[in-house]
Structures are given as C-alpha cells and as structure tokens.
C-alpha cells in the first residue's frame, strides 16, 4: 500500500509542478506547431504524398515528435531534483527504487499526454478525421511510446550531474531518433543504408502506427508496430529501474 501511495506522491508532485510552470506547456507546443504550420504548410503547397497533402502526412509525425521531445526532456527534472536536493528526500523515503522510477515515469507520461492531447485537438485543422476508435488507438500508441521515451530520458538524467550535460547527451539521442523515424518522409523507398537505420529506430514504429491510425496509410501492421514499441518500452523500463537502483544520493 505504501508503495502505491509513494507512486501517487511522486506523480502528484510532478503534476503540480507541471501545472505551475506554464512556460513548459507553451514552449513544448510551439515547436511542433512551427513544424506543422510553416514547414508542413510550405512544402504542402506543392507536395502530395500517398494521396494526402504533405502537411497532413507529417501531422502524425509531428505528434510523435512532440511526445519524443517532451518525454526525453522530462529526464532533466531528475537532474534538477538532484541539484535542489529534493532527490535526497525522495531517496531516503522507505520506498523501493523501482517505485520511485515508476512514479517519475508516470509523471513524465502525464506531461507528454497533456501536450499530445493539445496537438490531437488540432488534428482536424490539418485534415485528420477522428472516430472513437482512431482516438483510442492514438492514445494507446502515445502512452506506450511516452513510457519508453520518458524512461530513456530518466536513464540519461540519472547519470548526469548538470542540466547542461543532460542537454548535450540528449541532443545526440533525440535528433537521430526524430529524423530517422519517418516523421517527415515515407520510409518505403529509401537507400538501403538509410532504410536499415530507419528500421532500428523505435520511433519509426510509433510514427507508422499513428499514421496508419489517423491517415490509413501504414507500412507495418498495427500489431507489429505495437509489439516493437512495447518491447522497446519494456526494455527501457528494465534498464531504468536498474539505473535508479544504482543511483547515488
């Protein structure tokens, strides 16, 4: 029971901090909108891919991007916690380290989910038609993706001493994940070297699942995408738990 309360406490804290830092929400919505409106709108005026306007084509990709950035960057808050010494208060509590990790992951997923939802609301403006099924499937994909990516961010954060260091390492991880995911282009007819890199990127399957769900064009069956994403997430949670166990005060 106390472990459940512990998870609730850690989640509640992240949620409260999130709702009080309005700049976090605004800045994380701004970049995806820039991609959609300017980049998507600009290329979309002359390009049609798989029967849809380019702007519509990248919409699922940009939603994935928003989840990716918000989730992985959430890891910086463990670095902050260390800096402001709040981490000590948490680590000395009679909670398992895995409990602390799960609480943090849920906190990060909530951030991503709220931001994802704001973007999803804008979907119809970019040519996406929603049904209940589409929305449920989209949330399922976003949730699994966010869990894995928040874990990835926390793993990096648990090893870092400074937010600057975190930023450096994360940009090495986050941009390849984004650009190789097919968020901005179809992945079917790529040169073989690029194609194999794309297949190694877990985000590829998230983008593919979202695109299939929203636009009906996808490369892999939905369940294959889910299976790959879930394995990635399970793997990240496993490593994250270990990383938290080894984390020093």
């Amino acid at each position: 029971m106390s472990e459940v309360n512990g998870i609730a406490a850690l989640w509640l804290r992240e949620f409260k901090v999130f709702t009080r830092e309005h700049s976090r929400v605004v800045s994380s919505i701004f970049t995806p909108l820039l991609w959609l409106v300017v980049f998507g709108g600009g290329l979309g005026s002359s390009i049609i891919i798989k029967g849809v306007n380019y702007q519509t084509f990248i919409y699922p990709g940009v939603v994935s991007m928003s989840v990716l950035f918000t989730s992985v960057f959430f890891g910086v808050y463990i670095v902050w916690d260390r800096k402001i010494d709040f981490l000590k208060e948490v680590l000395v509590a009679p909670l398992r380290r895995s409990t602390i990790f799960i609480g943090k992951v849920l906190g990060g997923m909530t951030d991503s989910l709220i931001q994802g939802s704001i973007l999803l609301l804008l979907g119809p403006l970019f040519g996406v038609h929603y049904t209940i099924i589409v929305i449920l499937k989209a949330y399922l994909v976003i949730l699994i993706m966010a869990a894995g990516l928040v874990s990835l961010g926390l793993i990096i954060g648990s090893q870092m001493e400074s937010p600057e260091g975190f930023g450096m390492v994360v940009s090495f991880v986050i941009y390849p994940l984004f650009f190789l995911s097919g968020a901005l282009f179809p992945t079917e007819d790529l040169p073989s070297w690029l194609s194999s890199l794309v297949l190694l990127d877990p985000l590829t399957y998230g983008v593919d699942a979202l695109r299939g769900t929203m636009l009906g064009t996808q490369r892999f069956p939905f369940l294959v995408d889910l299976a790959v994403l879930s394995s990635f997430t399970a793997f990240m949670i496993g490593i994250g738990t270990q990383a938290f166990k080894r984390m020093k005060v």
Partner: peptide, 26 residues
C-alpha cells in the same frame, strides 16, 4: 532526517511538501 541542504520543493507549498512526505513514508 533533516539534511544540511534545504531539500523541500520550492515550487510546492509547505503543506504540499508535508503531504508528499506523509504519502511516501506510509
């Protein structure tokens, strides 16, 4: 334990800091 360094979350209120502690300590 009360640490040498301040270890409460300053974005939260005093009450909220205590509430989190109560939850984490069972």
């Amino acid at each position: 334990i009360v640490f040498q360094e301040p270890s409460s979350d300053d974005i939260l209120t005093g009450y909220e800091n205590l509430m989190l502690h109560a939850m984490m300590y069972g």
